[in-house]
Structures are given as C-alpha cells and as structure tokens.
C-alpha cells in the first residue's frame, strides 16, 4: 500500500516546528530511527526549512523613510476609536431593541386565546398563536417604525459630530 505522504509531511512539519504534543514527538523520533522512508522525508523537509530560514528580506529604496515622513508631516494621528464610541450608547441601543422585541412578544402572546380546547402539547401551543395579531394595528406599527428610524438618524448625527469634534481637537 502506498504511504500517505501528505500525512507524513504534516506530522513531520509539526515535529520540525515543535508544535506537536510530547507523545507525538516521541512517536516520530521512534519512526525516524526505525523507518528509512520517514528518515529520508524528514531530511528533505529539514533542508526546505533551512532554506526558508536563509531567505532574505527585500529592502525598499533609500528614500523610503524620508518619503513616509514627508507624507505624515501633513497628517495628524486620528483619535482612538474607544474615545469617541461610548459603550453606554451601544448598551443602550441593545437594551432598546431587546425591550422592543420583548414588548411585541408580550403583546402578541396577550392576544392568544389560551382557553381553546385541544391537546396541551408544545406544537399545539405554537399553532394557537395568531401571528397576524402581532402587527394588527397598522398605525401603531408605522408610528413605531418612524420613531426607530428617527432615533437611529439622531444617534448617527450625534456620533458623527462627536468624532468631528475629536478630530478637530487632535
């Protein structure tokens, strides 16, 4: 049977990189002593590893640092993201949306006629829910949606202004 070279190589690379478990390392050391094929493969990969270690970095032009420094002389460091994004606003938004969803659920379940006869299984409970009653008042839904959109728009303006202010200060 033809040996699985991919698996052998993967195990050997782990061994060379030193990322394998202690038990695996011992197993490979034994294989390297007893199995000629593993030994040949190991030396082959070791050569590749050494070659890769000997590869060199490329250098940019002599003017590189000067060019970068000239560019940044016209720039300012942007304020850290954490200074203009208030975590309380994110939490507030999260709580707002969760409250909205819970409110709709409570309202919807409140419309269900629980006294109707039938088996008391979960699927029957689910089937009893009249989903159309969740959004049965069109005017109310439109009103809520407009409020939500307005709220998000105002929040966006607020954050944009705050960011602009920080940038001006920086």
């Amino acid at each position: 049977m033809e040996p699985d070279y991919t698996e052998i190589e993967e195990r050997l690379w782990n061994y060379i990189d030193g990322t394998g478990a202690a038990g695996e390392r011992t197993a490979i050391e034994q294989l390297l002593q007893s199995n000629a094929e593993w030994k040949v493969k190991y030396h082959e990969l070791l050569e590749v590893n050494e070659l890769l270690r000997s590869s060199e970095l490329e250098a940019p032009s002599m003017r590189f640092t000067k060019n970068v420094m000239e560019e940044i002389s016209r720039l300012h460091i942007a304020p850290a993201t954490r200074t203009y994004i208030n975590k309380r606003i994110i939490w507030g938004l999260g709580i707002f949306f969760i409250t909205m969803i819970l409110g709709f659920l409570v309202y919807g379940f409140g419309q269900v006629n629980w006294s109707a006869e039938g088996d008391m299984t979960i699927s029957n409970y689910v089937n009893k829910i009249d989903y159309s009653k969740f959004f049965n008042n069109t005017y109310m839904n439109v009103f809520m949606m407009i409020n939500v959109v307005l709220g998000l728009f105002l929040l966006d303006r607020y954050l944009a202004n705050k960011r602009k202010k920080f940038r001006e200060e920086a």
């Binding site: 060019n67 720039l75 460091i77």
Partner: peptide
Amino acid sequence: NREDAEEVSQDIFIKAYRALAD
C-alpha cells in the same frame, strides 16, 4: 513588483501612523 510594493508599503506606514492611537 517593487514599484507597487513601495507604494503599498508607504501607504501602510501612513495608515499605521494615523491609527497609532488605536
């Protein structure tokens, strides 16, 4: 190619400078 690499590298250092506070 070296020309593009140099341009991209400059861009990287400029981005890093701008975002250093992060």
